[in-house]
Amino acid sequence: MMFFLEATIAGLLAGVMYSLVALGFVLIFKASGVFNFAQGVMALFAALTLVGLLQGTVPFVHTNNPDWALPAWLAIIITILVMILLAVLIERLILRHLVNQEHIILFMATLGLAYVLEGAGDLIWGSDVKVLDLGLPQGANDWLLDNYDLYVEKIEMVAAVTAVLLVTVLAIFFHKTRIGRALRAVADDHQAALSVGISLRTIWVIVWSVSGIVALVAGVMWGAKSGIQFSLSLIALKALPVLMLGGFTSIPGAIIGGLIIGVGEKWAEIYAGPYIGGAIENWFAYMLALIFLLFRPQGLFGEKIIERV
């Protein structure tokens, strides 16, 4: 029974980690209808920038100069500024030129963006594995392990708390601020929002900036588990079934979807995996999402798409 509880908790916490990535997708899709294929690479790029600043890495040369190393608080602020600058550049160089284009064109543009960002990250910061030293707790929670023989990783507990804070801040931002209301207006109807004087370009910069900051959080949490390296960009693959299940437009959907996928795949791997060769959790997550799609094509919390014929 204790092992079942342990597997369930591990699934829930892994689900939170998936949700952190999925949130970035949801924000952009909600505001602009663009499926941002580059979200995983944005998490990588943000994490690479942060660790580069922390270690004093000389850009393009890839050697570390201890004199250039920044304290964590300053490195985080500069990384956030870099992600905002990136959002401005994306709007100026890509989105602005693709207004009123089909969604598939915008999707393809983000596909290109993913490759450009990955290459830029490699060029600026190098490809080797970088250790992220932000003082985040590592290893098992000793108290739970010693007193209850329950294995829960500290970094995943931190990720869960961070996710709760992040969702709370996003909820306040969307519902209680003027910009947030403007974002929701754009998400509901671009044309109507434009007609009342909301600047689509500003909204896009804001939403891509927020998404960049969410990507930084996801990159830090995942990077703390494995070191910062290029496989971080593949965490986007873990977010896709979460989005399919939770819906592409719902922040609570991203959280609930993540939890269901996380627990589902852990149960499947542990209890069914040994009978069918193992390593099933990746495809099981997609299968679970597809089963949900059969009954709710818009996902659990997604908006129902109704089109007049």
Binding site: F3, E6, A7, A10, G11, A14, M17, Y151, W222, K225, S226, S231, L232, L234, I235, K238, E265, K266, E269, I270, G273, P274, G277, G278, A279, E281, N282
Partner: peptide, 21 residues
């Protein structure tokens, strides 16, 4: 006993829970 980990191996909690058990 063999425990497979799918590419790229970023998430391995199920594997290590089974090892713990």
């Amino acid at each position: 006993r063999g425990l497979a980990v799918d590419h790229p191996g970023q998430e391995q909690k199920s594997t290590w829970l089974q090892i713990r058990r």
